[in-house]
């Protein structure tokens, strides 16, 4: 696939408007190509596994630490408000709802957008500006399949798994605080944490994680794959990947929450 840096001789509306719509078209084309290539052999399982390792396993420590601190701090911050009503026994439910419904998918996605998105953008951008992608094309290898599909598949698989880890470790962090203050048992804490969670909430979190993973992968790959202007373009690709991924994650969060609420209250 060619980079989108070609300048047309004559603009349809104006330079900026034309470039905006051209960008939209290029993104849609990029996503369409991904869905075409992902189901078309030959597959690149080794590259997918390698990317899963880099994206998933290498992010686990960061996700675990962030998740534990999030659960712990969220519980600590919520305690004073609930103690005013003598409702500290509701902390597990509150933390359960907060972590499983919102915090686990969102924080994991934001961390991955920062760590993985920038990494993909920078990696593919440097390959583009150093003409390694063109070299792959010349050697009859499919750079899109090898570089883009493997990374997007890896992020789409690994982000939901990281969300699972994050949820569990976040609840453990919350449990530590609740146990220290209320001596609540492990069984009771997890029972109370899940008591207000419905299957819809759980499914919504998984769907959100899949969407976020796909977004992080596709944005990082698109920006890196279409990087221009040398080493400056590499940095720019990494930076823009993170910013756009995060922006899209928030937009998707709003849309998915709205859809889930429609389903919840329609049922």
């Amino acid at each position: 696939m060619e980079p989108i840096s070609k300048q047309p001789a004559k603009y349809v509306i104006s330079k900026n408007v034309d470039s905006f719509f051209s960008e939209i078209y290029a993104i849609i084309k990029f996503i369409g190509l991904f869905f075409k290539e992902v189901f078309t052999p030959p597959y690149e399982p080794r590259e997918v596994i390698k990317q899963c390792y880099e994206i998933g396993y290498r992010s686990l420590a960061l996700i675990s630490l962030t998740g534990f601190i999030t659960g712990l701090v969220f519980t600590k911050q919520s305690r004073p408000s609930l103690s005013e009503f003598g409702a500290t026994s509701w902390l597990p439910s509150l933390v359960g709802i907060a972590i499983i419904r919102a915090l686990a998918p969102l924080i994991t996605a934001l961390i991955c957008a920062g760590k993985v998105g920038s990494n993909i953008g920078a990696e593919l951008g440097s390959m583009r500006v150093s003409e390694q992608i063109e070299a792959m094309e010349m050697s009859a290898a499919d750079p899109f399949k090898f570089l883009v599909v493997s990374r997007v598949v890896a992020t789409t698989i690994m982000v939901p798994l990281l969300v699972m880890y994050m949820g569990l470790i976040g609840l453990l962090g919350s449990y530590v605080n609740v146990h220290v203050n209320e001596q609540t048992s492990f069984t009771v804490f997890f029972h109370d944490a899940l008591v207000k969670i419905s299957f819809l909430d759980y499914t919504a979190s998984v769907i959100k994680a899949i969407v976020y993973g796909f977004t992080i992968g596709i944005v990082g790959c698109y920006k890196g794959f279409n990087a221009t202007k040398g080493t400056e373009g590499v940095g720019r690709a990494a930076n823009v990947s993170v910013v756009i991924s995060m922006f899209l994650i928030f937009i998707e969060e709003i849309i998915i929450v709205q859809i889930i609420n429609w389903i919840r209250y329609a049922g």
């Binding site: 596994i49 390698k50 899963c52 390792y53 998933g56 396993y57 686990l60 698989i157 939901p160 798994l161 990281l162 699972m164 880890y165 949820g167 569990l168 997890f190 899940l194 969670i197 419905s198 299957f199 759980y202 998984v206």
Partner: peptide, 25 residues
């Protein structure tokens, strides 16, 4: 090694997911 780690990582993640499903169920 990477494949084994990714496999283990995925299985544990899926196990957490399934435990959640059964706990909620």
């Amino acid at each position: 090694k990477k494949a084994v780690i990714v496999g283990l990582f995925s299985i544990v993640g899926i196990a957490i997911f399934l435990v959640g499903v059964f706990a909620l169920g």
